[in-house]
Amino acid sequence: MPPSTSSDLTLSVNGEKYTLTVDHRTTLLDALRERLDLTGTKKGCDQGQCGACTVLVDGRRSVACLQLAVAAEGREITTIEGVAEGERLHPVQQAFLDLDGYQCGYCTPGQICSAIAVIEEHAAGWPSAATADVRPEAGPPPLTPEEIRERMSGNLCRCGAYVSIVQAVARAAEEAVA
């Protein structure tokens, strides 16, 4: 008997369990888009270079195109469809909407998922390449535009909406502190 080329697995996405049979070659990105009809996660390059497929895996940002669906079993996955609370948008979503932090919208779900993680990473004291003082006792650096730009640089926006994206992330971060 030839070795099986598919497996049954259960994915936990946005708090829901999905049981499905997947081709071993299926990426998490394609499983979300093609099998679970969660098309909010975008495919921009399919090789980890653009950030459009950024999702949260166990709360950490991760590009869904560079991991196989079979490797995502047992992880808690959050996509753009799962960040709002019912009808109430996540503060990052609301800031993108209010400040026009997008144009075509195709990189937007990835930018928003990334930004949610950036705000948490920053609050947890993670330094970035733009951080002047990286000693743990220095505490979180101010979340300046330079810090946001550095931390968001894995998410390309070809429309060039970076200026308003940075403003949106800054506003959402301020709200998270307030």
Partner: peptide, 20 residues
């Protein structure tokens, strides 16, 4: 603000490869 803005920030806006 964009009339389709909510769809774009929630992932509800479907692009060409996303229509079932």
């Amino acid at each position: 603000t964009r009339v389709e803005g909510r769809d774009k920030v929630t992932g509800a806006a479907r692009y060409a490869a996303e229509i079932p």
